[in-house]
């Protein structure tokens, strides 16, 4: 574009100012965008600490983690054996039991059916000795793997670690 003085306005000064201005607009937008991300108090809830010392063999609890239910099952030897025995079976989402656990006696899975997000019923309600999702009849085994029904995937295993013998921490801390 040429103005009435016949000078090219797209010179260095204009370009530099335009570039600096664009950077400023982008920079000014950032705090607004970022303000919608989870706030510090929400992030502080990224992890849930659970006392598992009171959980006897065969017992299961549901704990809330990041607003979602998590099953913590203290598996009996029979339940462990059943899960390992089926490792070779044909499955929709093949996974070895050993890859889904850290300690064989503790199963920790996100309790949201991978079909449409219902919460499955407790251990022992479904075939294969596992969990039955009541909404559309999905059966998960004692390792939380999909064995029968419409769900496409196994119950996901959240990040967790054993802080000590009696404390399980679910989730990763976000700084």
């Amino acid at each position: 574009m040429v103005n009435e003085q016949g000078e090219n306005r797209r010179d260095f000064l204009m370009l530099a100012t335009g570039a600096v201005g664009a950077v400023g607009v982008a920079g000014a937008a950032w705090p607004f965008i970022k303000s919608m991300s989870p706030s510090a108090d929400v992030l502080a809830q990224a992890t849930t600490e659970v006392d598992i010392s009171t959980l006897s063999e065969g017992q299961m609890i549901t704990v809330p983690w990041q607003g979602k239910p998590v099953f913590i099952l203290h598996r009996t030897q029979a339940q462990i054996d059943e899960a390992v025995k089926d490792d070779g079976q044909a499955m929709r989402d093949p996974e070895k039991d050993g890859d889904r656990i850290q300690k064989p006696e503790w199963l920790v899975v996100l309790a949201l059916c991978t079909h449409l997000g219902c919460v499955p019923q407790p251990i022992g309600t479904g075939e294969y000795g596992g969990f039955l999702c009541p909404c559309h009849g999905t059966h998960y085994d004692t390792s939380g793997r999909i064995r029968k029904g419409p769900a496409p995937k196994n119950l996901p295993v959240p990040h967790y670690e054993f802080k000590d013998d009696s404390t399980l921490v679910i989730g990763k801390a976000i700084a």
């Binding site: 003085q5 000064l13 100012t17 201005g21 950077v23 920079g27």
Partner: peptide
């Protein structure tokens, strides 16, 4: 610091444009 730079640039453009 950013605003000082931007304002200086805008002032330069304004000066140049109006001087004519």
């Amino acid at each position: 610091l950013y605003l000082i730079l931007l304002t200086a640039l805008l002032y330069a453009i304004k000066r140049r444009m109006w001087s004519k």
